[in-house]
Amino acid sequence: MTTNPATHLPVLDNQPNSRRGFMKACGATLGLAAWATALKPLTEWAADMNVDEFLQKHYRELKPDEKQAIFRRLEADCKAEHGVDVKIADPQPNDGVQFAYALNLSICIGCRKCAEACSIENNHDRKTNNSYIRVFEMEMGGIDFEKGDATYDHPVPQPDKFYMPVQCQQCENAPCVKACPIEATWQEKDGIVVVDYNWCIGCRYCEAACPYHARRFNWEKPTIPAEEINPNQGYLSNRIRPQGVMEKCTFCLHRTREGRMPACLEACPTGARVFGNILDPQSEIRWVIENKRTFVLKEELGTKPRFYYFFDE
């Protein structure tokens, strides 16, 4: 057919007003409507998001007043959602401080009090009983995780076993930090590796990269009963995380940067845990590292953990 295109309206096609052209227009309309319906859940999800949050810059590019505005917004959000007054602080790393942790495997009894305390302190999701610490029941005679068991459910301690809690090792050469495509996770001056929960896109590459199973993903919005919310929160640590982002142990930086001890250490009934500033010659951690035969996990990977284990000789 050779009709002059100029005589026809360009409806989807340079065709005459044929039935087919009409059908196409109908098809296109129907198609658009179908797509809008299919994607409707997105609008429901976007309903409780705001523009400020969407446009928020990376933590390290925020000016002090911008930070304050964000903290106040998060506090208001929490009040609106849970009816709880929380305080979001942002303690900075102190000069001359390098944190390190050590754990005495000879006296750990595997009671999981540390894991429990972590869960409460860090506002973890209660549905999954999440915690940054996993305690492994290990066979005497070597560090062999293949023979370990993190899901034991019997009275402890068992004879011929020892117990090995594992959490983020705050690697000096952290594979997770290298992996992240958008610098949503980084190492602070005092050695603590943090995540900006408002910047992370939830790709989970860091979780694949971590050799110590230290990272946790918020597969859904965490649920915590209002009365159990810990109101003393840090922006980079234990504030309630949004859905779809990564989280990890921060050595309780909202406590430790203000001179307190991590929650897991305080909860330990045996005193197996030693924490402190490794640059302070008087510190207990320094004494342990200088006098005990400490070791780190998976030394061969070159991650340089700041988390040491030792046995009493």
Partner: peptide
């Protein structure tokens, strides 16, 4: 597309 939209809303 619909399954994805629901996944975004309700979480991974």
């Amino acid at each position: 597309a619909n399954a994805w939209a629901v996944q975004v809303r309700d979480g991974m």
